[in-house]
């Protein structure tokens, strides 16, 4: 398993956010995390990525538990995971190519990474190949700020590819995008999982996207997992449980969407 997580627990200021989360993501699989706001899905991803420190639990990459590693080895193991953010987090003033090259920084000597003019030619070529894989090779020398939101998120995916990650963690990758761009990015993530064998885990706010694109969906409610099922087996009842507190506004909504899917 590229990524497996056991007994992940986390609390902030005495409030328990994760009450023991267990899951794994296989190579070639796109797994969606669903849940209401505050259910702990983003915290799960941030703990796995090492942005937030979990209170307890074990995170393994290709069978190696991260908590047994230290210093350089830990850093190298972490670099096999790449993160995609809701707010994209590219540098708008730099070109798409330069932003993608930044994914390779851990392999570039510091002096050669001080300016885009000094970047090794092979890294630049690899970055261009990554942009080609997300369908944006023709925009390589455009400033990222001039691209649309959906194109920017695809550049961010290319940056993750240029990091040579086997595991891609996406924290609400499409929440800031219009519906059409969201479909494109989800299709891209699914394609990367299926055709390139990446293990992709994505936190999603839209159950219909999860059901249509993810191979498997995991439901989180108040920091605990309520289901971990192939997306085809998920019913309106499953989703109702997740979004129960909002039921008076959204339950018809959710079941409608589920039927549509």
């Amino acid at each position: 398993m590229p990524l497996s997580v056991h007994g992940l627990r986390k609390s902030f200021n005495g409030r328990t956010v994760l009450k023991g989360v267990d899951f794994s993501v296989a190579a070639g699989e796109l797994v969606a995390f669903l849940g209401a706001n505050g259910s702990g899905k983003s915290t799960t991803l941030r703990c796995v990525m090492g942005i937030t420190n979990p209170d307890s639990g074990s995170i393994s990459i290709d069978g190696t538990a991260l908590e047994t590693l230290q210093g350089r080895e830990l850093q190298q193991a972490r670099q096999r995971m790449a993160m995609i953010f809701q707010k994209i987090h590219l540098v708008p003033r730099r070109t798409a190519l330069d932003n993608v090259c930044a994914g390779a920084l851990s392999r570039i000597p510091t002096v050669r990474s001080l300016s885009s003019l000094l970047l090794p030619a092979d890294v630049q070529q690899e970055a261009l190949d990554c942009l080609d894989r997300v369908g944006l090779a023709d925009r390589a020398f455009d400033r990222v700020g001039r691209l649309s939101g959906g194109q920017q998120q695809r550049v961010a995916v290319a940056r993750a590819l240029c990091q040579r990650a086997d595991v891609v963690l996406a924290d609400e990758p499409v929440s800031a995008l219009d519906p059409h761009a969201a479909e494109q990015v989800m299709a891209l993530l699914r394609e990367l999982a299926h055709s390139e064998g990446l293990a992709v885990a994505a936190v999603l706010h839209q159950p219909d996207l999860a059901l249509r694109y993810a191979d498997r969906s995991i439901g989180l409610l108040h920091g605990s997992m309520t289901f971990d099922l192939p997306s085809t087996e998920i019913t309106a009842d499953h989703l109702d449980t997740l979004y129960a507190p909002d039921r008076d506004v959204s339950d018809r909504d959710v079941s409608d969407r589920t039927q549509a899917a």
Binding site: Q79, L90, L105
Partner: peptide, 11 residues
Amino acid sequence: GPQEALRTAGA
């Protein structure tokens, strides 16, 4: 954000 993104990428 962009700085955090590069940190998670190992820069």
